[in-house]
Design a protein around this nucleic acid. Structure first.
Lengths: 224, 224
DNA sequence: ATTTTAAATATTGTTAACAACAAGGAATGC
DNA sequence: GCATTCCTTGTTGTTAACAATATTTAAAAT
């Protein structure tokens, strides 16, 4: 079998484009011309269109008919709606995780937080929320909730959008230590099977995260 | 301007295909061959692919690389996850609607329920949940919540999937009168600004809806 | 100089042909 | 008779050319 599978030209494209967008190599608002991308990946425009449509469905790319695709730019209202929805989804995720958590998964959660604590001790500067450590924690909980639909919605749509949103505002989020503390409390509640507490703490955790970001949004404006 | 706009061949396709799927003209599990659809709509395979990708993103069509597209078939687990997620989203929608409802919107809600009551009186057979009357009610609340992301998620993804799911199991749902009563109670809570009550009633309303469907699912099996 | 109009250019939407893959059936071997 | 292999057929993935739309540039008129 050749290393290049047939029906997956756009699959590789989509992954690499996604990476470029999330790491900021292609910046919010930047044009995504089909011909340019086709040349760059040495492929025709067909697969490029597929990949762009897929990224548009994931909310990372905005699409205007007859105009083209750009890396999505979040308005302030977009950001608010995103965090509000996230708070709703994740607080229920935490609730269900607390009810349904198996012993294995719960232990993987504490192990994860152990790694995070080390990571913070090693880099006191406090870039905890970078490197996807924060996302890891939330994804584990989303999996523990045992609802595939919810899991995919969070992991494939909301979290990438959040990453792009933070990138757009060069968000550094200095609350690394505080966030870790909140994570630990949420984990405790889940392990103890206290579903109401887990849901409440998760909601507050995300609201706090929103408040931190919202403050930074005051300065840097977002054009429509 | 001509009645046929250029950059929207697939847009019309998508709408008509969606209609065919939701009305059951094309049934769950049925193949959606690109050439057949291209001939039917007198268009090439390109726009057909676009439309199918869009419907796949909306969860109405399942897609296997190198194999093709079929109308989605929901497993029992899919259905459970769908209703569970819906309960979470809509109970928050009701909560926010109660907090943020403007007077105009609230009155449109009571007006809507008035029409529904007439509809039930006229057709006591009780097909209340058909004809999209039920969906209308829930969409109005989703709009009242004033979160565009949530609104689109519900109106463009979850509700179509629910409609397809019900179609798959020929669900008739005899609880028309009961459902209307529940709707009225939810509307009252929203109008009174009682957000906690609205959220609770909505959650129970959807759980009751799930229980009704879940019972019918016992008989008719769903293949993977 | 400014605004308006018109041509030129670049980009997206669509099409039809070609290439690669999957599925089913016939022929062959045991 | 049964299984396996190969081939045929139908379908999806990809490509390159064509059509239509948006944008930019330049010219012309006020």
């Amino acid at each position: 079998m050749s290393s290049i599978e047939h029906g997956s030209a756009w699959s590789a494209l989509e992954a690499e484009l996604r990476e470029d967008i999330l790491t900021g190599r292609i910046r919010p608002g930047e044009r995504l011309g089909e011909v340019a991308l086709a040349e760059r990946f040495a492929v025709s425009r067909g697969p490029v269109r597929d990949a762009l449509r897929k990224l548009a469905a994931a909310g990372l790319v905005s699409f205007l008919p007859n105009i083209g695709a750009r890396v999505r730019v979040f308005s302030r209202e977009d950001a608010r709606a995103l965090y509000e929805l996230r708070a709703a989804l994740e607080s229920d995720a935490a609730r269900w995780a607390a009810r349904r958590a198996g012993q294995e998964r719960a232990s993987s959660l504490v192990q994860l937080l152990g790694q995070h604590a080390e990571s913070i001790a090693a880099h006191p500067a406090g870039a905890y929320l970078q490197n996807g450590k924060d996302a890891d924690f939330h994804i584990v909980i989303a999996e523990m909730a045992q609802n595939p639909l919810l899991r995919n919605l969070l992991a494939d749509e909301l979290y990438p959008q959040l990453a792009l949103l933070r990138r757009q505002h060069r968000n550094v989020d200095g609350r690394g230590r505080v966030a870790l503390r909140e994570h630990e409390n949420i984990a405790d509640a889940i392990i103890n099977g206290d579903d109401e507490l887990a849901a409440l703490l998760m909601r507050r955790h995300i609201e706090a995260s929103w408040n931190a970001l919202s403050g930074q949004l005051e300065a840097g404006d977002t054009e429509k």
